[in-house]
C-alpha cells in the first residue's frame, strides 16, 4: 500500500496550485459566510481530489501497468479509501485552522469555541466519508466519465428521496423526530456514527469486488 500511497501523493502534488486557490476560496467563504462553512467545503474538495487520482490511474491504460506491480486489487481499493481519508483529514485541519482564525479576526477570541468547531468538523468528516462511499465505487466501476454520470444519478435519487420524505411526512411527525433527536442526542450521534461506519465498510467491500471483477 505504501507504493500506491506514494504514487497518489505524488500525483496530487501536481495540483498544488489548484489546491492553493481552493484554500484561498475556502478562507474567503469563511469570511463572507459562517466561518465553519469552509471546513465542509474544503473537505468536499479534498474528497474530489482524492477520487480524481482514479482518473490518473485510468489514463493511458494505467491500470494495466498498476496491476502488474506487487499490489492486489483488494489493496488498491482499500488504499483509495485510506488515501481519501488522509487527504480529507488534511483539508479538515486546514479548514478548522482557517475557521478559527476567521472567527477570531471577524468576531473575537471569546467567540471561538474550538471544541464545538472540532465536533462539527468530525461530524462533517463522517458525512464526507459517506459521500465518498457512494462516489468511489461508481468511479471504479464506470471510470471517470461514466462514473461522474452515475454519481449524479445516485445523488439525484438520494436528494429526491429526501425531498419526497419532507413532502410526504406530516409536520407533526417531523417535529416529533426533531424532539426525539434533541432528547436522545448522544444515542442518535452514536447510532449515526455506527451507520456511517457501516456504509463506509459496505462501500469498501463493494469497491474490492468491483476491482476484483474488472479486466484490463
Amino acid at each position: 500500500m505504501k507504493g500506491l500511497l506514494t504514487k497518489d501523493f505524488l500525483l496530487i502534488r501536481n495540483q498544488w496550485t489548484s489546491a492553493l486557490i481552493i484554500v484561498a476560496a475556502g478562507i474567503f467563504m469563511a469570511f463572507s459566510m459562517q466561518p465553519s462553512a469552509c471546513i465542509a467545503y474544503l473537505m468536499m474538495i479534498g474528497m474530489m481530489l482524492a477520487i480524481g487520482t482514479t482518473g490518473y490511474d485510468e489514463f493511458d491504460n494505467g491500470y494495466r501497468f498498476l496491476f502488474t506491480l506487487p499490489v492486489s486489487r483488494k489493496t488498491y481499493a482499500l488504499e483509495k479509501y485510506v488515501f481519501a481519508a488522509i487527504i480529507i483529514l488534511g483539508f479538515m485541519v486546514i479548514g478548522v485552522a482557517g475557521a478559527a482564525i476567521v472567527t477570531v479576526v471577524k468576531y473575537s477570541a471569546a467567540a471561538l469555541d474550538i471544541l464545538e468547531l472540532l465536533a462539527e468538523a468530525l461530524a462533517m468528516f463522517l458525512i464526507v466519508m459517506v459521500a465518498l462511499s457512494f462516489s468511489l465505487p461508481s468511479r471504479l466501476k464506470y471510470g471517470s466519465e461514466k462514473g461522474r454520470i452515475a454519481l449524479y444519478i445516485i445523488f439525484g435519487i438520494l436528494t429526491g428521496i429526501g425531498l419526497l420524505l419532507g413532502y410526504v411526512l406530516p409536520a407533526e411527525t417531523v417535529n416529533a423526530m426533531e424532539m426525539f433527536v434533541k432528547s436522545h442526542a448522544t444515542a442518535v450521534i452514536i447510532s449515526l456514527t455506527i451507520l456511517a461506519v457501516a456504509v463506509i465498510a459496505g462501500s469498501v467491500i463493494i469497491s474490492i469486488r468491483i476491482m476484483e471483477k474488472k479486466e484490463y
Binding site: K2, G3, L5, T6, K7, L10, L11, N14, Y56, D57, F59, D60, N61, G62, Y63, R64, F65, T68, L69, P70, V71
Partner: peptide, 30 residues
C-alpha cells in the same frame, strides 16, 4: 509479484509523474 518484472507495450507509470517520481514509487513497491 516482487520477483517479476513486467513491461506492457501500451502502459506504464503515469505520464504525469517524472522519472524521479517513478524511482520513489518503485522503491516503495519493491
Amino acid at each position: 509479484r516482487c520477483r517479476i518484472g513486467t513491461v506492457m507495450s501500451d502502459s506504464g507509470i503515469s505520464g504525469y509523474l517524472t522519472i524521479e517520481d517513478a524511482e520513489k514509487i518503485l522503491k516503495n513497491f519493491y
